[in-house]
Simulated assay, not measured.
Amino acid sequence: MFEETMADYCGSKYAVSTDNCTDALLLCCEYLKVDEVTIPSKTYLSVPQSIMHAGGTVKFKDYLWSGIYQLEPYPIWDAAKRLTSNMYIPGSYMCLSFHIKKHLKIGKGGLILTDDKDAYDWFKKGRYEGRGEVMYHQDNIQINGWNAYMTPEQAARGLMLMQNYPENNDDLPEKPYYRDLREFDLFKNIEVVK
């Protein structure tokens, strides 16, 4: 019910809930088998880590963003700081966050918005150890999935919060500003593109 509510509110055909936005990004990167991905140098540090865990190479670009940005050139959007009605970009995979500091303060949780049925089916299995909607001993596991699903308790809280949720919201402010990720040893040798 939470996924249906979010898809309807955001204007996408499908929504797949996850345990956080980081895992939503990881699932998208895994599904698309990303190669080189360009992101802003000032963003949350789990974004490049998700790309790297999926086998991709990160490149940084110096620019300020507000609310949402693309993991270029892929149709993956980090929308952790945006949640407003009809925000979905057709043909994309938009990843949302429900951290306590975000719009919908579930406490923990994420979501992937999409209009791609094949991706939707893959994300549902990928977030749940590769399992379908049957008991795992009755299933034929075909993909190497993750334990990245949203708990029923988190989904119920999200449904409760959506009952009085406003139709339109501004993007969350960028303050405190994200640290330039190149300051961390893990990312100091990453190429910067113009």
Rank of each mutant, 00 (worst) to 15 (best):
G145W: 06
T151W: 03
L113Q: 01
I89T: 12
S92D: 07
E133R: 11
K59G: 00
T114N: 07
E3T: 06
E191D: 01
Y149A: 15
M87A: 14
P73V: 02
A156R: 04
L27A: 15
T5P: 00
I112W: 07
K33E: 06
K33M: 05
D115I: 07
S66Y: 10
M162P: 05
R127M: 10
N168M: 13
G67L: 06
K124G: 09
G126D: 12
L113R: 09
V193L: 00
Q142Y: 11
P48L: 09
K124Y: 05
G132D: 13
E3S: 05
G132T: 11
Y177H: 13
I112E: 05
E30V: 12
P152M: 08
E129W: 14
Q142T: 15
D180K: 02
P75Y: 10
F2M: 04
I100G: 01
Y31I: 07
P152H: 08
S85E: 11
S46G: 08
Y69S: 01
P173D: 13
D171M: 11
G11L: 03
L26F: 14
S66G: 10
E191H: 00
L159V: 02
R127H: 14
I89H: 12
K188P: 03
A79D: 05
F98D: 02
M52E: 14
E72V: 01
H103G: 08
Y69V: 00
E191I: 00
S85G: 11
A79S: 15
L186P: 05
A156W: 03
R82I: 12
W65L: 00
S41Q: 03
A79W: 06
I112S: 09
Y69N: 00
D139H: 09
F123Y: 13
D62C: 00
G145I: 13
N86S: 08
K59A: 00
F187R: 03
L111M: 15
T84D: 06
P48C: 05
W77T: 02
P176H: 08
G11K: 12
K125G: 08
I39H: 01
N140G: 12
D19V: 15
M162G: 04
E72Q: 05
E30K: 14
N144H: 09
Y165S: 04
L26E: 10
Y128H: 15
L113N: 05
C95R: 02
T5N: 06
N147P: 08
D170P: 15
V193E: 00
T18L: 11
A80Y: 11
F60L: 01
P48W: 04
G126T: 04
K188I: 06
G130H: 12
P152Q: 10
H103T: 06
K175S: 14
G130K: 13
K81A: 09
N144L: 04
L45P: 08
K81F: 07
M160E: 06
K42W: 00
V193W: 00
I141P: 09
K59C: 02
K42Y: 00
P75Q: 14
I190C: 01
Y128W: 14
A54D: 15
K61F: 01
V47E: 04
